[in-house]
Amino acid sequence: MFSRAYKTLVSLPPLLWVGLFLLLPYALMFAHSFWAVKDGLLVHQWNLDNYHTLFAKPVYIEVLLRTMRIAASVTFCSLLLGYPLAYYLSFHSGGRKELLYQLVVVPLWVSYLVRGYAWKTILGSEGVLNSFLQYLHLTHEPVSFLLYSPFAVVLMLTHIYTPFVFLPIYAALEHIPRPLVEASQDLGASSTQTFLRVILPLSLPGLIAGATFAFVLSLGDFLAPLLVGGASGTMIANVVQSLFGAAYDWPLGAAISVCILFVVISLLFLTERLEKRWSFK
């Protein structure tokens, strides 16, 4: 029903734009990762040295592994908080459902930076938590391991991604036809059995989507480590950032970025297949 001209008119501008401002930049990053820096200048000399450095120096692998550990912890904690919350809202909140849903969504609109900053003021050695503990006479010295540690990074990112993880899980739970739950009870399954055999399997696509989101975004985060992570909380994106900044080695930074990109895209590919396998619509 739509003419050729109509289709061309709507397709061409976004195609050109996305080609120029997304595809080309990503391609440039890929290209950079095969170039080199000589005497502080970028040379377009194709080589694999950057990747070689990456895998030869244990420090990069170490940071990458730590990053994945942190991202996995964030994912796990966000699920631990987000899934029961979504389950509660979808199945047990009764008439307050709409209001509570809004309450979960509001923090999504609250600045990332603001929330990170809030944690900084809470966890610091002269922060709210420490003065609270001293006020209660639980400690006399400030507890210093709170801020500037991987723990603080995990805490802050969990705080940020819990609502993100909540959303797809909640959507999946809301899409489970309620007669299925009734059918399960009708067939003699207790609440626990119904949850394990019907609700959980049917909410898996949402769970995977939420987990992927939390993992991928934590994986590439460089602000949380700068804000609350300290030296021990440094993540792979911080390495990239410093290579693009003070260290001035764009090709090596690009190579690490390409690696992150590779991990992210294969993860997306994998989870997309899993989501498809476990969605039964």
């Binding site: 036809p177 007669p179 299925l180 009734e182 059918a183 399960s184 009870q185 009708d186 067939l187 003699g188 399954a189 207790s190 019907v198 399997p201 049917l202 476990w278 039964f280 619509k281």
Partner: peptide, 20 residues
């Protein structure tokens, strides 16, 4: 009694078969 303790079974309007 809760539904799962009743010796009653239901055929639902839209069948409510478990899709998974």
């Amino acid at each position: 009694l809760p539904p799962y303790k009743r010796r009653v079974n239901t055929v639902f309007q839209h069948y409510a078969l478990f899709p998974h």
